[in-house]
Each structure stands twice: as C-alpha cells, then as structure tokens.
Simulated scan of single mutants.
Amino acid sequence: MGYYVEVEKNVKIYVEDLNPKGEKTILFLHGWPGNHKLFEYQFNQLPKMGYRCIGIDQRGFGESDKPFDGYDYDRLSDDVRGVVDALKLKDFTLAGHSTGGAIAIRYMARHKEYGVCKLALFAAAAPSLIQRPYFPYGLPKQAVDDIIKGTYNDRPNMLRGFGDIFYFQHKTGAFSDWVFKLGLQASSWGTAATANTWLDEERLFYDLGMISVPTLIIHGIHDKVCLFPLGQAQNQGIKNSRLVPFEFSGHASFFDEKDRFNSVLASFIEE
C-alpha cells in the first residue's frame, strides 16, 4: 500500500509499504534520479519471503513533493528519520543504493543509527562520488558538472545517457528507457540540486567511522557511476562491514544479478 508522510511543513514523502505484517523490515532508499520503483524485483520477491519492504521516494523524486530546496544529505536523512518516526520502525535494515546509500550513511551518523540493526549499501555514492586531492577513485568533477549542465539545458538527453551506463548485463533499449522514464518523474531542480550535493559533500568520510552495526556492501565491479573502489573505501571505513563484489553487475546489481542480490541480502539479514 502507498501513503504519504509529512516530514516538514508542506513537504510530504511518498511511502510504498509492502507486507506490513512481515517479521523483519527493510527500508529501501533509492538512487538518483529514480524512485522506489527501482527496487521492483526486490518488492516482487522479498515480501514472499516474509519481509516487510518499505520504499520511499526522496523529496523531488517519484511521487513525493518537490520543494525547491532541501537536497543536502542532512535534510534528506532527516526526511528518512521523519518516515522512521511516523511508522515507529525499530530493528530494521536500512538499505541504500547510490545516492540513497550516501543518505543512509548520513542517517547512521546524524541520527546515531536510530532504529537500525543492520545496514546494506548497494553501489553507494560514498565516501565521495567525485575525485578529490586525497581521494582519486571517484568520477572526474567535470563529469558531474556536465550532468548538472545537462539537467538545465537538455534533461531528457542527460537522462538518456545515464540510462545507457546504468546496467552491465541489461543494456537493451527497454531497460534504458525504463530508467529514463523514472528520471523524468523527478523535478529538474531536485535532480540538479542532488547532483550538486555530490560536489559539496565531504563529511561522509567521517560518517563511515560512526557506523557500528553489521554492514553489507554490494558493489558491481563494472559500475561506471560509482566506481568499484568506492565500495572498497566503504569496506575500509566501516569497521563491521563485508564487501561482496558482483562480477556481472554495473550500477544496478539488483537487476543485473537480481536472484543473487536477493539471496545475499536475505542471508545477511538472517545472520
């Protein structure tokens, strides 16, 4: 079922809540520029295995409200806390993909792991999506500048290019079209502002050290968005973490290797 949670005045976040009576809960945070529908295959299968699966659309994306501001990781993690409080969630697994993974990491540090018993990161955009003098493993800053410029000048073309590098195995036009259409559901201002956060945000390096719960890191070795060394850096920075490389995945292991992905995630939750 779907409903809305007001996280601040005049800003409502869309929540998809499947199998509310499930014994264990997974809260999914989607990546840029999609929405909760990116986890379609997980929502098809994991509730059958007894899990409560909750997907939220970040502000500016999907079916959530689209205010003009509030796209830094602090505010986005506060939005997550608003949903956690409204649903009274406890002992849940927080799962984040790409930018959603960065938001999950900020939530763990800023909100002191509130309610979370385990953390799962999928191709997370952390500790830095872009290259920095002390961190040479991300994308060139120019690549993000081009995304922001493309968002303002020709967003459909920018999204088309992003969809083309999203997958490793599923490179058919249909899959690229699907990501393209999910991206069009977002606001242009939220799309650009979130990308700008990638440039501004450096505190995730510190945040990694604040995480104490068991952490699963799934990262495709062919990822062209959040390069594989980011997963290795997360593994080094989070003390109680395990990195599981996905040899046949790009940025979307939850589709490139969907059966293995679900199996690895479920096994981690049951440990």
Rank of each mutant, 00 (worst) to 15 (best):
P67N: 14
P156C: 01
E257I: 00
P136A: 11
S249D: 12
Y14T: 08
G34A: 04
G100V: 09
V5C: 11
E201A: 06
F175L: 03
L216M: 09
V225D: 10
N153V: 03
R160E: 06
A86M: 06
C53H: 01
F248H: 05
V15Q: 09
I103S: 08
G231K: 10
L38T: 10
C117S: 14
P33V: 03
F168S: 05
E113W: 02
E247V: 00
L89Y: 04
K141D: 11
G237R: 15
I54E: 10
L199Y: 03
G138D: 14
T99R: 08
A86N: 09
A124V: 01
V11E: 04
Q131Y: 03
P127G: 00
G70I: 03
P33Q: 11
I26T: 09
I130M: 07
E8M: 07
L199P: 00
T215D: 11
L184S: 15
D200M: 15
D256S: 03
L159R: 11
A195V: 02
F248M: 09
A233G: 12
S267M: 15
F28D: 13
F162Q: 03
R132S: 14
G150L: 02
Y14C: 07
L243T: 10
K66R: 10
T197S: 12
E16A: 10
Y41N: 06
A95Y: 15
Y73W: 10
D177C: 01
S263M: 13
I217N: 10
P33C: 06
I218G: 14
G231Q: 08
N153T: 05
G31Y: 14
I103A: 08
G161M: 00
D200V: 11
S77K: 09
G62F: 07
H219S: 06
Q42V: 05
I56T: 02
R155S: 00
Q236G: 01
N35A: 05
G163T: 05
G150C: 08
F43Y: 15
Q234R: 04
R155F: 14
K181V: 04
V5K: 10
D256M: 02
G70V: 04
R160G: 05
P214V: 01
P136N: 00
W32G: 00
A143Y: 05
F268Y: 11
L216C: 14
K21G: 00
I105L: 14
K24L: 15
D223P: 05
P214C: 12
P229C: 08
E16V: 05
V179E: 14
Q131P: 13
F175E: 09
P20Y: 15
G209W: 15
L265T: 02
Q236W: 15
A192C: 06
L139T: 01
H111Y: 00
P33S: 12
E202K: 09
K88F: 13
G190D: 12
A86R: 07
K90C: 06
I105G: 13
Q45C: 07
D164Y: 02
K21S: 02
A126N: 01
F168Y: 13
S187A: 12
Y3L: 07
M158I: 02
A252W: 06
A233H: 08
A125Y: 04
L139N: 03
G96T: 07
K171P: 02
I217E: 06
G82W: 09
L139F: 01
